[in-house]
Lab assay of single mutants.
Amino acid sequence: NQASVVANQLIPINTALTLVMMRSEVVTPVGIPAEDIPRLVSMQVNRAVPLGTTLMPDMVRGYA
């Protein structure tokens, strides 16, 4: 089972991601792999991401 990136807090739209906003968790469906967390830092979300939501590739500008 692969860990995915999950929002550690509410992340408002257009917010640049920081390490404290994300955690890794084994979830279904699988989202962005946890090993990509360092790559996600400073990328912006293109929608509001509620606490506990799995980050999907289409939620992060420039990721996919």
Rank of each mutant, 00 (worst) to 15 (best):
Ala34Val: 15
Ala3Thr: 09
Leu19Pro: 05
Gly52His: 10
Thr28Trp: 04
Ser4Asn: 01
Thr28Asn: 11
Met56Arg: 07
Glu35Asn: 10
Thr15Cys: 05
Ile13Val: 12
Thr53Asp: 14
Pro12Met: 15
Pro57Phe: 10
Arg23Cys: 04
Val6Cys: 04
Val41Ser: 04
Asn14Glu: 15
Thr54Ile: 09
Met43Ile: 04
Ala34Tyr: 06
Gly62Ile: 04
Gln44Glu: 08
Leu19Thr: 07
Met22Glu: 00
Asp58Phe: 14
Val60Met: 04
Thr53Pro: 00
Ala7Gln: 02
Val41Phe: 07
Thr54Asp: 01
Ser4Gln: 02
Arg39His: 07
Ile37Asp: 00
Thr28Lys: 04
Met43Trp: 11
Thr28Asp: 15
Gln2His: 08
Thr28Pro: 02
Leu17Trp: 02
Asp36Phe: 08
Gln2Trp: 09
Met43Ser: 05
Arg47Asp: 06
Asn46Glu: 14
Asn46Trp: 07
Met22Gly: 00
Ile37Lys: 06
Gly52Arg: 07
Ile11Cys: 03
Asn1Gln: 14
Ala16Glu: 05
Asn8Val: 10
Gly52Asn: 14
Asn46Gly: 10
Asn1Trp: 09
Val20Asp: 07
Pro50Cys: 14
Val60Asp: 01
Ile37Ala: 09
Met59Ser: 05
Leu17Lys: 00
Leu10Glu: 14
Leu51Thr: 12
Arg61Met: 12
Pro33Trp: 13
Asp36Thr: 07
Ser42His: 09
Val49His: 02
Pro38Met: 11
Thr28Gln: 06
Ala7Gly: 03
Met22Ile: 12
Pro12Cys: 05
Thr28Leu: 06
Gly52Pro: 00
Gln9His: 12
Gln9Glu: 11
Asp58Tyr: 11
Met59Gln: 05
Val27Gly: 03
Pro57Glu: 07
Asp58Pro: 07
Arg39Ala: 08
Leu19Gly: 05
Asp36Trp: 05
Leu19Ile: 12
Met43Gly: 03
Ser42Gln: 10
Tyr63Glu: 03
Leu40Pro: 00
Pro12Arg: 11
Arg39Trp: 09
Thr54Leu: 05
Pro57Leu: 05
Ser24Met: 10
Asn14Val: 03
Glu25Ile: 05
Ala16Trp: 13
Val6Ile: 10
Ala64Asn: 10
Met56His: 10
Thr15Phe: 09
Pro12His: 08
Glu35Ile: 09
Pro50Arg: 14
Ala7Asn: 02
Ile32Met: 03
Met43Thr: 04
Thr53Ala: 13
Val26Asn: 08
Thr15Lys: 08
Val30Gln: 07
Glu35Gln: 10
Gln44His: 10
Ser4Leu: 01
Ser24Lys: 05
Val26Tyr: 13
Asn8Met: 14
Ser42Met: 13
Pro38Gln: 11
Gln9Asn: 09
Val41Met: 11
Ala7Pro: 01
Val49Cys: 04
Ile13Asn: 13
Thr15Asp: 04
Pro57Gly: 11
Tyr63Val: 03
Leu10Ile: 10
Val20Cys: 15
Val27Ile: 12
Val6Glu: 01
Glu25Thr: 09
Val49Glu: 01
Asn14Ser: 08
Met56Lys: 05
Ala16Pro: 12
Ala48Phe: 12
Asn46Ser: 11
Ile37Gly: 06
Val49Pro: 02
Met21Leu: 07
Leu55Lys: 01
Val49Lys: 01
Pro57Cys: 13
Gly31Asn: 01
Pro38Asp: 11
Ser24His: 11
Val26Leu: 13
Ala64Phe: 03
Thr18Gln: 08
Gln2Asn: 12
Thr28Phe: 07
Thr28Glu: 15
Val20Phe: 14
Thr54Ser: 05
Leu10Ala: 14
Glu25Met: 06
Gln9Leu: 14
Arg39Phe: 15
Glu25Tyr: 07
Ile32Lys: 00
Ala16Asp: 05
Ile13Trp: 06
Gly52Glu: 06
Thr28Ile: 07
Val6Lys: 04
Met56Tyr: 07
Val45Phe: 00
Val45Asp: 00
Thr18Phe: 03
Val20Thr: 15
Pro57Arg: 07
Asn1Phe: 15
Leu40Arg: 00
Glu25Leu: 04
Ala34His: 10
Leu51Arg: 06
Val41Gln: 08
Val20His: 14
Gln2Ile: 08
Thr15Ser: 10
Ala7Ser: 11
Leu51Ala: 11
Met56Glu: 08
Val26Lys: 04
Pro38Cys: 04
Asp58Gly: 10
Thr15Ile: 05
Leu40His: 00
Ala7Ile: 08
Met59His: 12
Ser4Ala: 03
Leu19Ser: 06
Ser24Glu: 11
Ile37Cys: 05
Ile13Lys: 13
Val26Met: 14
Arg61Cys: 15
Val27Lys: 07
Leu10Trp: 09
Pro29Glu: 13
Leu17Cys: 02
Val60Thr: 02
Ile32His: 01
Asp36His: 09
Met59Thr: 06
Gly31His: 02
Asn14Arg: 09
Val41Tyr: 07
Pro12Lys: 12
Ala16Thr: 15
Ile32Asp: 00
Val49Ile: 13
Val27Pro: 01
Ser24Cys: 06
Ser4Asp: 01
Ala48Leu: 10
Val20Pro: 05
Ser4Arg: 02
Ile13Phe: 12
Gly52Ala: 10
Met22Trp: 02
Ala48Glu: 11
Ser24Asp: 11
Gln9Lys: 08
Tyr63Trp: 14
Gln2Tyr: 11
Val6Ala: 03
Asp36Glu: 13
Val60Pro: 01
Thr28Ser: 10
Ser42Lys: 09
Asn1His: 06
Ala48Val: 14
Leu55Ser: 01
Arg23Asn: 05
Thr28Arg: 03
Arg61Pro: 13
Pro33Asp: 06
Leu55Asp: 02
Asn1Cys: 06
Val6His: 02
Leu10Arg: 10
Met21Pro: 00
Ile32Tyr: 02
Val60Gln: 00
Val27Ala: 09
Leu19His: 13
Gln9Ile: 10
Gly31Asp: 01
Pro33Cys: 06
Ile13Ala: 12
Met43Cys: 04
Ala48Gln: 09
Ile11Gly: 00
Ser42Pro: 02
Val45Tyr: 00
Glu25Gln: 08
Met43Val: 04
Leu17Phe: 02
Asn14Pro: 00
Tyr63Ile: 04
Pro38Tyr: 08
Arg47Gly: 07
Pro12Phe: 05
Ile11Phe: 01
Ser4Thr: 04
Val41Asp: 03
Leu51Gly: 12
Pro29Tyr: 04
Leu55Pro: 01
Ala3Met: 13
Asn14Gln: 08
Gln9Thr: 15
Ala48Thr: 11
Arg61Glu: 06
Val49Thr: 09
Gly31Ser: 02
Val26Glu: 15
Ala64Lys: 13
Ser42Cys: 15
Thr53Gly: 06
Met56Leu: 10
Asn8Glu: 13
Arg23Ser: 07
Met22Ser: 00
Val49Gly: 01
Asn8Gly: 07
Pro33Glu: 05
Ala48Asn: 09
Met21Val: 04
Val30Tyr: 11
Tyr63Phe: 10
Val6Tyr: 02
Arg39Gly: 06
Met22Thr: 02
Ala16Tyr: 12
Glu35Met: 09
